[in-house]
C-alpha cells in the first residue's frame, strides 16, 4: 500500500513540477470567436515579450460555465453586457484598478458609464454590435425587413437560428411585438411557442459558421451577430445584413479579469494596449466591427467607418433592445429553450 502512496506522491510532484517550470510572462485569453484578431494578439506578444495564448467561444454561457467551475486558467475574458452582471454577482471578476489603465480615458462617451457596470468597475468595453439577420438574395427575392421572414414557410429548410438561447429569444419575443430581455413569464411563454412553431421550417441551429451557410446558399436567411458576417458581406455582395424593424438588439463585449487569474499584470497590459487608438482601429478594421474608442473611429478607412452593417444608422439604434441580466427569470428561458430543443 505504501508503494502506491509513494507512486501517487511522485506522480503529483512531477505534475506540479511541469506547472512551475514556466518562466516567461504569460497571458491566457478567452475571447469571442472572430472578435479579437490573431494579428492584434501577435503584435502585443511581439511588443511586450509576453507569451499569449487565445481560446475562443461562441456563447457567453460556455465561458461562464468554465469560470464558475473553478480554475479555468484564463487571465482575460470577453463577456457581453448581461454576462458582466452575472459574473459580478457570482464574485468571479476582479475589481479593476484604473491606475493601471491609463488609456481608459480613450473610451468613447457613450461607453464611459454603462448601465450594466457603472464606473467600469469590472469590465472595459472593447467592441459593440447588433443581433439581426442576414439573407442571400439568390433565394430571397424581395428585401427582408422583419423577423417574420424567418417564419415564412417558403424558405423551409433554409432558415437557421443562432444556437444560443438568449439570441433565439430576441427573435421569438420581438416577432410577437415584445421586448427582448423581458422577465415576464407570459411573454417568455409566448416566445417559446413561436420558436417551437418555427422549428418546422428550420434548417437548424448554428452559432459558429452561419455566415458561411448564408454565403454558400445552404441557408436563405440566418439569424446573425453582425460582427460574424461583416467580413462575408464584403466578399459576397449577394449577402445582406438587416436589423429587423421590430428592433433587433445591441450588445457590448468587453474585457474583464477573472478573480483567480494568475497573470493579472499581463491582463492589464493587454486591456490598456487595446485601448490605444491605433490598436483599437486596427482591431476594428481587421474584425470589421464597431470600436468603442472614438479616436480610433477617425482612423478607420471610409468603407469600415461608413459601413451600415457595422455602424447602423441612428434611427435603427434608437429601437434596439439591450439585454440585461434577467435574474431568476433565466430559469423560465431555460425551461422554454429545453421545450424548443426537444419539440419534434
Amino acid at each position: 500500500m505504501l508503494k502506491y502512496g509513494m507512486l501517487l506522491a511522485t506522480t503529483s510532484l512531477l505534475l506540479a513540477g511541469t506547472a512551475l517550470t514556466a518562466s516567461a510572462e504569460e497571458l491566457h485569453i478567452y475571447a469571442w470567436a472572430s472578435e479579437l484578431p490573431q494579428e492584434i494578439v501577435d503584435d502585443f506578444a511581439k511588443e511586450t515579450g509576453i507569451n499569449v495564448t487565445m481560446d475562443t467561444y461562441d456563447s457567453n454561457e460556455t465561458m461562464m460555465a468554465k469560470l464558475s467551475a473553478g480554475a479555468s486558467g484564463y487571465d482575460l475574458v470577453e463577456p457581453s453586457q448581461y454576462t458582466v452582471q452575472v459574473l459580478v454577482k457570482q464574485g468571479l471578476l476582479t475589481e479593476l484598478d484604473h491606475a493601471k489603465l491609463p488609456n481608459l480615458s480613450n473610451l468613447g462617451a457613450a461607453f464611459k458609464d454603462v448601465s450594466y457596470d457603472p464606473g467600469q468597475k469590472f469590465s472595459v468595453p472593447y467592441i459593440w454590435g447588433t443581433t439581426g439577420l442576414a439573407y442571400n438574395e439568390d433565394c430571397v427575392k424581395q428585401p427582408i425587413t422583419s423577423w417574420k421572414a424567418m417564419w415564412d414557410p417558403q424558405y423551409e429548410g433554409r432558415v437557421y437560428m443562432l444556437d444560443n438561447m438568449l439570441a433565439a429569444y430576441i427573435a421569438g419575443l420581438q416577432v410577437n411585438g415584445l421586448h427582448a430581455g423581458t422577465a415576464n413569464p407570459e411573454e417568455i411563454e409566448k416566445a417559446t411557442q413561436s420558436l417551437i412553431e418555427q422549428k418546422k421550417i428550420l434548417g437548424g441551429y448554428n452559432s459558429s459558421n452561419f455566415g458561411e451557410l448564408v454565403a454558400s446558399g445552404e441557408a436563405c436567411i440566418v439569424q446573425a451577430w453582425n460582427s460574424n458576417v461583416t467580413q462575408i458581406l464584403d466578399e459576397n455582395p449577394k449577402v445582406h445584413y438587416v436589423i429587423p424593424e421590430e428592433g433587433g438588439s445591441m450588445w457590448i463585449d468587453g474585457f474583464a479579469i477573472p478573480k483567480n487569474a494568475k497573470n493579472v499584470d499581463a491582463a492589464y497590459k493587454f486591456i490598456d494596449y487595446i485601448m490605444k487608438p491605433e490598436v483599437a482601429a486596427k482591431a476594428a478594421n481587421l474584425s470589421k466591427s464597431a470600436t468603442v474608442v472614438d479616436a480610433a473611429k477617425a482612423l478607420l478607412p471610409k468603407e469600415v467607418a461608413e459601413n451600415q452593417a457595422i455602424y447602423p444608422p441612428a434611427d435603427k439604434l434608437k429601437k434596439v433592445d439591450f439585454i440585461l441580466d434577467v435574474g431568476d427569470a433565466m430559469k423560465l428561458y431555460q425551461d422554454g429553450w429545453t421545450k424548443v430543443k426537444t419539440a419534434q
Binding site: M64, A65, M165, Q334, T338
Partner: peptide
Amino acid sequence: VQLFLDFRNI
C-alpha cells in the same frame, strides 16, 4: 452539454 455549458446547471 446544454446543461453544463449553456445553462450552467452542473
